[in-house]
């Protein structure tokens, strides 16, 4: 089959780790649809992108001065599909982006998000939820590039993995020289539910500017036993308790989804998978 490099991390590392690039079927890239969007200066917009059927896509966005965009992207592909998606955003002065991304579908997917905080005081808040089960493969590459002064970028990632799923999450905060007083924060919390999982995380921080504050943190572990115990002492079955704990873990992202029906859909999608475990 024809393979092609879809995404790469901004700085390479040991090849044996297998995280330097994501390789996907060329066909997927050929089929990919482009969407170009410009948010005019001062405007406030909300957008929803859903991937449900065999489709791949790229969304290119420019957010004008003082404009605000809330972009929600849901990937709820059927379990037998392969999928790629890409988001490229450039933020002008004082522009704001809130990106809520949910990656719960497809047999195998690769996504990449590239956000450029170009204008001074622009801000991007990214919340990502991913969930893997069965023998699914999840590949994500998120880059926040700080160019402007006093830019702010937050990347919060909540993940759950079970079955034999494999995941790579790469998250980069890249402070360019001149991005004075920029602030970047990245965190990834992964809850691992079964022993067959392979979980790879690459939290990268690059800096050519000293006048910045950058933090990243990753934690990966089992579901919190104390919480489970507490819930079970209130009469919940282990499965119910796990569902509840995981739901709580995902809530920071779920509650950002405005559409109640969609939120319910994702919630029950995950619950269903937990039950079939």
């Amino acid at each position: 089959m024809n393979k092609e490099i879809f995404s790469e991390i901004p700085m390479r590392t040991w090849n044996w780790l297998g995280v330097n690039e994501a390789v996907v079927d060329r066909d997927l890239l050929v089929e990919s649809q482009n969407l170009d969007i410009k948010i005019e200066a001062g405007h406030q917009e909300k957008m929803l992108v859903e991937y449900r059927k065999e489709s791949c896509g790229t969304v290119n966005i420019n957010i004008g001065e003082n404009a605000v965009l809330k972009l929600t992207q849901l990937q709820l592909m059927p379990q037998n599909c392969n999928h790629v998606n890409e988001i490229n955003v450039v933020l002008e002065k004082k522009a704001k982006l809130q990106l809520v991304a949910v990656e719960t579908g497809a047999k195998s997917f690769a996504s990449k998000v590239n956000i450029i905080l170009k204008g001074d005081k622009s801000q991007a808040d990214v919340s990502l939820l991913y969930f893997g089960d069965g023998d699914r493969s999840l590949d994500m590459n998120y880059v926040l590039e700080f160019q402007g002064r006093k830019t702010v970028g937050n990347l919060e990632v909540y993940g759950g993995l079970m079955g034999e799923s494999q995941k790579i999450f790469r998250g980069t905060l890249d402070f360019k020289q001149g991005a004075k007083q920029a602030k970047g924060y990245e965190k990834e919390n992964v809850v691992v539910l079964s022993s067959g999982v392979r979980n790879r995380s690459v939290p990268i921080m690059l800096s050519g500017e000293d006048d910045v504050v950058g933090n990243h943190a990753v934690s990966s572990g089992k579901i919190n036993e104390d919480k489970l115990h507490y819930l079970m002492s209130r009469g919940l079955s282990p499965a119910e308790a796990r569902k509840l704990v995981l739901e709580a873990a995902f809530n920071p992202v779920l509650e950002l989804i405005d559409d109640e029906a969609l939120r319910q859909e994702i919630d029950s999608y995950i619950k269903e998978r937990l039950e079939n475990e």
Partner: peptide
């Protein structure tokens, strides 16, 4: 620059 990688198998 900071470039750590974690590659974790299993749930424990």
């Amino acid at each position: 620059d900071t470039l750590p990688t974690m590659d974790i198998e299993g749930d424990e």
